[in-house]
Design a protein around this nucleic acid. Sequence first.
DNA 1: TTGTAAGCGTTATCAC
DNA 2: GTGATAACGCTTACAA
Lengths: 330, 330
Amino acid sequence: MTSIKDIAKRAGVSISTVSYALNGSSKVTDETRSRILHIANELNYIPNAAARTLKKKESRILGVFLTDFKGDVYGELLDGMKEVCNSQGYDLIVCSGEQSHRMLPERMIDGAVILDHTFSSEELLKHAQRNHKIVVLDRELEHPNINQVLLDNKAGATLATEYLVEQGHKKIYVVTGPDDSFDSIQRMKAVNLVASRADDVEWIELPGDFKKSGGERAAERIIQEYTEPVAVFCLNDEMAIGLCNRLADTDFIIGEHVHLIGFDNIELSRYMQPRLATIDYSKRKWGALAAEQLIKIISGEAVEHERIYVTLVQGASVGRGPKRSKLYTN
Amino acid sequence: MTSIKDIAKRAGVSISTVSYALNGSSKVTDETRSRILHIANELNYIPNAAARTLKKKESRILGVFLTDFKGDVYGELLDGMKEVCNSQGYDLIVCSGEQSHRMLPERMIDGAVILDHTFSSEELLKHAQRNHKIVVLDRELEHPNINQVLLDNKAGATLATEYLVEQGHKKIYVVTGPDDSFDSIQRMKAVNLVASRADDVEWIELPGDFKKSGGERAAERIIQEYTEPVAVFCLNDEMAIGLCNRLADTDFIIGEHVHLIGFDNIELSRYMQPRLATIDYSKRKWGALAAEQLIKIISGEAVEHERIYVTLVQGASVGRGPKRSKLYTN
DNA sequence: TTGTAAGCGTTATCAC
DNA sequence: GTGATAACGCTTACAA
């Protein structure tokens, strides 16, 4: 591997002159610069990132941490982040898994965007304490070095629940996420609020996991307890799809016996028959904003926490209110 | 930031002793080791990755490069890679975009898995020439430092085309990927071979892009030229779905007027109505194998190119042969 | 304008 | 078993 030392030798100058030339410093004559550049090119010189990072104490790399790589929300979110990072001269790397937790403390990256519950809040606070910069997308965490860019879960869950109530539903199943999920807890709170404000609305919590399996299990319960048309709010689309899958094996009809709404508006939702009602938000913007905020706190700018707004997407999966339709089986 | 120097000072030993203790060398007494470890802990010592990488000339990080983060194939593929990497003490980072091309030559990572046509083959060969280790998933490239783990495109496209031919289809549209896509070119070759071997089969190439929009454009053409039921082989599922979308606005019925098969078996395909026929393969295994091969060539082991096998997934989207059904509109 | 030299935080070779 | 010390490749005062 050729280093600036080799270039210096070949050019008959010192390594510092080479370094200046390479970094476009004005301290060097155009002539020597072009000579050095030419030699560097000839020798196929490529700078060593580790050395630069070690010296400058920054890598110009940002990391985003995900619980896993599956998940339909991620694609656009990451592309949004990438765009902002690149436009600001940062590189973005996507990390997942236990090993990846080292990257921030070991200073491989200049900052982290967290959407990964395998990071504990204590862990994140500890990092923030050591002056590492962090943006959290999946929890509330207060620290000068931590910024929050959160979904407006409350608004979303309120929209969804009110939509069901407006359609005349009186019995609403709510399929939750994992117990420790911030999103799930927030959404539940809003459901509770709306339901308690409405007359005569009963809501039943069904424990879920934000995965298809959770929706399937919820479907089992609903089938068992079924007496009349019900409404179901799955706290994310993936569970809603799991629920549809399970119901597809039965004579229950979505939009008629089971009135269903999800959350996230993942791509699949568009293709469900009937179209899944859900809560939409711009994943791209979420990512872009997260990256922006991270870069700002790295640059020492003061920032406020941000919120990603959501909208209701109506869909035939919710149908037109309880029609008390007869079910042929069961 | 506390470094081994600080620990050495506090422990009253030299930095080399600290380094030995930290790295579990047997050259140090248990007593001093535990004392040092204790102090390191007390001072919240965390090693500096850049310094280690600079000195050891390896980062124990592997990179995988994607054209973009969208794409339904990636989730499982990446999880497969992550699993193998972590089990071998490597960390995995996912990269995309022009800036990310620096990571390999600048030695930020010990090796790269390429699934990204923004890397030219010349670029990759140049890296290989400089002793960087690479596994390619999206092209054929021969070099001692490059290993190929490729889909069996030929087998897949043959299975798909034969399936259509067996169902009695005589006119087959083939919607291709981008011109420079290795996968697309390989699949086309197989289609051509099967079609030319079969009596009386006509096939028409429709230029696509592996994205939904390509499928939509293909649908336009097919609608315009429609005279009798046709078969369509979209060279990936995403275009097949785009095609379905466009056709959903018409009276054409998939499986009846348009007999459709895709490639990839992405998750969405399961949820299409009717179920999309397609070519399946294990994305997780693909990723796992790629990571394995990369680690092997990094360790200096000799490896052979690998192939990922594929199977046919039948689906109602192909229907039961040309039934010459009447179309009400058009 | 260019050179000298220190230093970033490690690892590793060699003495002791 | 432990300690000096050089080296990894680069940036950046400071000196010339």
